[in-house]
Nucleic acid binder design. Structure first.
Lengths: 122, 122
DNA sequence: GAACTATATACGCATTGGATCATATTTGAA
DNA sequence: TTCAAATATGATCCAATGCGTATATAGTTC
């Protein structure tokens, strides 16, 4: 009901008139990753599947808040959800997340290193 | 004054206690990319350097709005700024942006394809 | 079914950030 | 110096979103 035109994104540089819908989707994906607590959750899940209580413990957030963030991450397709009795286990479903985080981390590292150099080189 | 501990992000999966500061920086970077109009600007700049008026024309936004978004992108280190007389030219300064966008696009494409399959396969 | 645990959700509040209008600033030209 | 064009910024409004508290739902055990 919401995917009429498959996003055409051939290498991101060839597009002529990229549709608004596609832009919104991409922006949304970035927005999901734009919260420190959600990044913390992802980081915790990099080691492997965990249930909500474990994540609450690991991140130090409130249960309600963690639950909400997990919902956000899951409904965006980044996490998967698995029920086992009373427990609900979450895991990283979209492997591109690893690379994505690495890219941003690397870029920031480089950026900060350059800035540090500017200070040092006087 | 704001980069005391260089973000340690060795492959994103090895970190023990990733500092809040780092998380905020990463989240901020994602947040900058989480706006359709900014993505549109980046897309326009993928072809090469452009000045503000050109970008206003290409994106269909208002001058004030475009100017603000360019400011956001520039101060985050994603774009560079070059003055030439009355004109101000912006260009992509952080090459990782290309890869970043490709990654997200690819991931979304795959996700939507899967969803489409679910519908088709009944 | 009652009680308990794990997880999800509804509500209200406070903050943030984008869009717009008007105006300021910079620079080139007459 | 005065004007005009290109760009930036201040003020304001409005929508979105995150957080906390309280409560609801689901599943387990007795």
């Amino acid at each position: 009901m919401s995917a009429p035109n498959p996003i055409s994104c051939p290498s991101a540089s060839k597009i002529r008139s990229l549709p608004d819908e596609g832009l919104e989707l991409i922006a949304r994906r970035f927005a999901v990753l734009a919260e420190p607590m959600r990044l913390r959750l992802l980081h915790s899940l990099f080691e492997g599947e965990k249930n909500v209580s474990q994540l609450v413990e690991l991140t130090g957030g409130t249960q309600a808040n963690i639950s909400r963030h997990l919902q956000t991450l899951t409904s965006s397709g980044i996490l998967s959800r698995r029920k086992e009795g009373l427990l609900v286990f979450y895991a990283i479903a979209d492997p591109s997340i690893y690379h994505l985080c690495d890219l941003v981390c690397g870029s920031l590292e480089q950026q900060l290193t350059k800035q540090a150099d500017v200070f040092a080189r006087r």
